[in-house]
Amino acid sequence: MANDPQVNVQVGRLLRANTRACVAGCLPSQNFPPFGSLVSIDLGQEISAYGLVSDIHIDDDGLVRQLVTTPNISETVIQDNRVNRNVPVELSVLFVGHRSAGVISHRLPPRPPLSLDRVRACGEGDVCAFTSAGSLGYLRFILEAQDLPAADLLAAHLLQAGRAQRDHGDEQWFARAIDKVITQLRDDYVRLMPVLEALADVQRELGI
C-alpha cells in the first residue's frame, strides 16, 4: 500500500476481468494492497471502477514446490523467487461501484477494465469519498458475493474505511455501516452472527 495514505498508488495491472470482478497481477516484492482494501481502475472517459481486494492469490510452480522441500532456503533464493521469477501475485478485486464524471455510484461499473489497465490502491481521501457516497448500498456486493469469505472481507474493508472515516472526523460511519449490514443480513441469523463477531474485532481495533 502507498506510504502516503492520501495518495492513490499503482499496485498492479489487470490480468482478466468480467463485469463483477477482475484479477490484477503485481510483483510479489511490491507492497500490494491488503485484503479488503479499496482499489480503483481508470476505465477512461472519466469513468473509474472501484473494487475491494477480495482475494490475494500467490501461485506456485514446479520450482517453488521443489524448493519448499529443502530444509534451509537461503534468503537470496527467497528473494530470487519473489523478485525475479515471473510468478505474479494475483489480486482478485470485487467491483463495488464506479465513478462517472465525478459522481460516485454504488452500482457495478458500466464495463470491465481491459488487460493491463492500471490498478491503484485508494488513498484515504478516496476511501472516504466512496464510502460516504449514497447510503452504503455497495455493502450488498460483499454480502451477496459467492465463494468469498464475506465476514472477513467485510471486516477488513470496514477496518480500512472506518479508520479513514474516523480520521476524517466521522466517528459514526462505522456504526452506520454495521447497521446497514444488520439490515441486509438480519433474515439470515446463521450468516449474520459470525459477520458481527468479525466486526466486533474491528470495532475494538478502531477503538470507537
Partner: peptide, 19 residues
C-alpha cells in the same frame, strides 16, 4: 544442488534456463 532439495541440480542453472 542442495537448494533444489530432493532432486539435486544447481539452482542457478535452473534459473538461467528458466529465464
Amino acid at each position: 544442488c542442495r537448494i533444489m532439495g530432493g532432486r539435486p541440480y544447481p539452482y542457478l542453472l535452473h534459473r538461467a534456463h528458466e529465464t
